[in-house]
Computed example of a mutant assay.
Amino acid sequence: MLLCDVGNSRVKFYKGGVTQSMPVAEFMRYEPKERIFFISVNDSVKKKLKNPLFVDLAPHFELKTAYRGLGIDRIAACSAVSTGVVVDAGSAITVDLMFKSSHLGGFIMPGIGTLLKSFASIAPVLDVTLSTNIDLDPLPQKTVSAVNYGILKPIVLTIENIAGNNKIYFTGGDGAYLMRYFRNSIYEKDLIFKSMVSLIAKKGLA
């Protein structure tokens, strides 16, 4: 069974626990040879996905929420968690609160990479790389640490504020990095794909 998650810049494929990806431009030249179950947040590939071998899973998800316009990627991720906080950390960071399989709301923040690029555009001295080991307790004493602190501390405090005592489920490219700043957390690289697999089995779609 082949799964596909179409993002704005890249397309991820998942089969048998193995994940591969390609740029959207390359995906537009891709010709499927088997049935592919997909979700997509990218309107520019709608024509491509009309191929009958592509099966859209979006209509099959049933998430209780009052949130208007919740993206299918967030719906899929949240559907995998009954109670807890779902954090998808990529170019943007989405944070969603789940309680007894109901979505209570969520918010979006700029991602770590996006903020690093923003600082770099302000002045050359602020063009720094992400530190792999920064302590967020003491105040920084040099510019590199100050930029890293200024990016990470607000993100961590904001997530802590909404999470409370709930378990935090991290996914996305920066999820494993952010997870280290939280005690009650887990990193699920393939959270969305696992949710898709569960849905297909539950609905008998395969």
Rank of each mutant, 00 (worst) to 15 (best):
K64W: 06
A146L: 05
M196K: 12
V55S: 02
S145T: 05
I151A: 02
V197M: 14
S118F: 02
A120I: 11
R29T: 10
I134W: 07
P140E: 00
P140T: 02
R29L: 06
G90H: 00
L2V: 12
K50S: 15
S195K: 05
K47N: 09
E31A: 14
L205G: 11
K153C: 04
F170D: 01
K100Q: 14
L49Q: 03
F37A: 08
G150Y: 05
M196W: 09
S101E: 13
E34Q: 05
S9A: 11
L130G: 06
P23E: 05
Y177I: 01
T143V: 03
S79A: 08
L139Y: 06
D174N: 15
F38V: 06
K189N: 15
K194C: 10
S44N: 09
N148P: 00
V24W: 04
K194T: 10
K50H: 08
S145H: 10
M1K: 02
H103R: 04
T132P: 10
I36T: 04
N133E: 11
R74A: 00
S44W: 04
V24M: 00
G173F: 00
S40C: 07
M1R: 06
D56I: 10
L3W: 07
A206R: 15
T83Q: 02
N165L: 03
A58Y: 11
M28A: 08
S79D: 04
I186C: 14
D174R: 01
I72R: 01
G69A: 05
F182L: 09
S79V: 04
E62D: 13
V156C: 01
D5M: 09
A58K: 15
L126Y: 13
A206T: 14
D174W: 08
T171L: 11
D127N: 15
R180L: 06
A76H: 07
G69N: 02
P140Q: 01
A146S: 08
K153I: 01
Q20S: 13
Q20L: 11
V144G: 03
K117H: 07
R29E: 11
I75T: 08
K100N: 14
R74D: 00
A80F: 07
F38Y: 15
L157H: 07
I151E: 00
L3C: 03
L63M: 04
K194N: 15
V55N: 07
V18K: 15
D190G: 09
N51Y: 02
L104K: 11
K15S: 12
A201G: 11
V147P: 01
G150P: 05
P124E: 03
A92M: 08
P32V: 07
G111I: 09
G175K: 07
M109G: 09
F107V: 04
K47Q: 11
L97D: 14
K12E: 10
K33G: 15
R35K: 15
N165E: 09
V95F: 13
M1N: 03
R10N: 12
E188W: 02
T65W: 01
D190F: 08
V95T: 12
T132Y: 13
T65F: 03
N161C: 07
L178M: 15
T158Y: 05
L49I: 07
P154Q: 08
N161H: 13
K167W: 01
G84P: 04
D137M: 08
T132C: 06
I192M: 10
D43N: 11
K12R: 14
L2N: 15
